[in-house]
Design a protein around this nucleic acid. Structure first.
Length: 421
RNA sequence: GUGGCUAUGGUGAAGCGGUCAACACGGCGGAUUGUGGCUCCGUUAUUCGAGGGUUCGAAUCCCUCUAGUCACCCCA
């Protein structure tokens, strides 16, 4: 117990942290290219924010939040996603008073209490992007391209972009009642889950994997045919923009997002070899969210990318960059007097930003050389009695095996010229 | 939250009721006195995810729990 991380959490060890840094730096690069700026919000927020923002009836809020009471009696959840928090910060700091749109991104941990699986953890990490204030659809296309370009820049292939429009408060109710009319007489034949979806969120029935439900849904009316004029025009224009940019996409009328705040554009990027957790990126427009959170009516759109899933996909496609630690100099002292000399040398070199290390295990020279070659270190400075007496160091090139006795004072210059090559 | 499968050292794994828990890799140490990457030698699990039970005897059988994994649910 004491030596096990809590269920659904993972330690990132030194042999993999380099992969994370790689992916995160790619995310930052892309955001810079697209003009998005980083925002960092707290890992916990007030419960009300997510109740309002995500929706009280959603699974995320109903059964997946890590909520605790703090010592002041406040109900505090660890954030299950970050869009609501970004909107909160947008309002709290009156970012709307600055030149709009607000183009923001974040990278960080999210928390959902769920049964862990590969690609689904209780603490997981998202890279998310939000563009607030523009009604689109140009910014919709921009955001989607950003996501696609990010994933492509990592070399990922076999990605599929799915696109849909979920309408707006004008047209969605019509579609909803149309759906309910469609399913009304089929109700007894639907599965248990779908019967409860009928009232709560009939659009979810379309998504059901039960054979019976899928068959019943064969001739279901599609939302694209029920969009109001504005939503239809928006959706059309978005498709035109994506085509103009040469981005391949697939319309998926059954694509429904799980969070209440989505309107109009909904999209998802899938990498199917990941199995059940194949959604690498999910996003959409949330034109009602900011008002819902107490601001002026303001449109917004964003997405989140699951970094664990991206890493899994990269691993599957053998696209993880090699991580090669290296060291310019390893100091190998042979006795206590030499340790002091070596320590001084190493300290000085480190101040000059030369990467170096020395023995702290009291090992034999043989063992020290072995260690240095595994590191791998480019040079080893062997320091024994003779060297200490003469203020010199036996500098050994680990690649060639050559070694020369040189003045300690010259080590730095020697290393610098060697590193030039 | 529901169902299936799994659980032996740092890693990959043998063992399937009865002497010291194979083997490989890795780690550490060594092969004459201050020299690595090859080779050779030694060493590295009083213990088999945890806790109960059955038995003269259990890593091996049973139960509970924990964790991983796959699928559902949902989502990134």
């Amino acid at each position: 117990m004491l030596v096990n991380a809590p269920r659904g959490t993972k330690d990132v060890l030194p042999d993999t942290s380099g992969f994370w840094q790689y992916v995160e730096s790619r995310a930052r690069e892309i955001c810079k290219i697209y003009g998005y700026h980083e925002i960092r919000t707290p890992i916990f927020e007030h419960t009300e924010l997510f109740l309002r923002g995500i929706g009280e009836t959603t699974d995320i809020v109903q059964k997946e939040m890590y909520t605790f009471e703090d010592r002041g009696g406040r109900s505090i959840p660890l954030r299950p996603e970050n869009t609501a928090a970004v909107v909160r910060a947008f309002l709290e700091h009156k970012l709307y008073a600055q030149p709009q749109p607000s183009k923001l991104f974040y990278i960080g941990p999210m928390f959902r209490y769920d049964r862990p699986q590969a690609g689904r953890l209780r603490q997981f990490h998202q890279f998310g992007v939000e563009a607030i204030s523009s009604p689109g659809p140009t910014v919709d296309a921009e955001i989607i391209l950003l996501a696609v370009q990010f994933l492509q820049s990592l070399g990922l292939g076999d990605l599929k972009l799915y696109l849909n429009s979920v309408g707006c408060p004008q047209c969605r109710p019509h579609y909803r009642s149309k759906l309910q009319a469609f399913y009304q007489d089929k109700l007894p034949q639907l599965c248990h889950d779908c019967r409860s979806r009928f009232d709560r969120n009939p659009m979810r029935i379309l998504d059901c994997k039960e054979n019976a439900c899928a068959e019943l849904s064969q001739d279901v009316p599609e939302i694209v045919d029920c969009l109001c004029e504005e939503c239809a025009a928006h959706f059309n224009q978005l498709q035109n923009l994506l085509k103009a940019a040469g981005t391949e996409f697939h319309l998926n009328p059954r694509l429904v997002r799980g969070l209440d705040y989505y309107t109009k554009t909904a999209f998802e990027i899938q990498y199917s070899p990941l199995g059940a957790q194949s959604a690498v990126c999910g996003g959409g427009r949330y034109d009602g969210l900011i008002e819902e959170c107490g601001g002026q009516p303001t449109p917004g759109i964003g997405f989140a990318i699951g970094l664990e899933r991206v890493l899994l996909a990269l691993e599957k496609q053998a696209l993880l960059p090699p991580i090669t630690p290296s060291l310019d100099l390893y100091a190998a002292p042979l006795d206590e007097n030499a340790v002091a000399v070596a320590f001084r040398l190493v300290s000085e070199l480190r101040r000059s930003k030369i990467s170096c290390d020395m023995d702290v295990m009291g090992r034999s020279l043989k063992a020290q050389l072995k260690y240095a070659s595994q590191y791998p270190a480019r040079f080893v400075a062997i320091i024994g009695d003779d060297e200490v007496r003469q203020n010199k160091v036996m500098l050994k090139n680990m690649k060639t095996g050559d070694q020369h006795l040189i003045d300690i004072a010259d080590v730095r210059a020697k290393l610098l010229t060697e590193m030039e090559e």
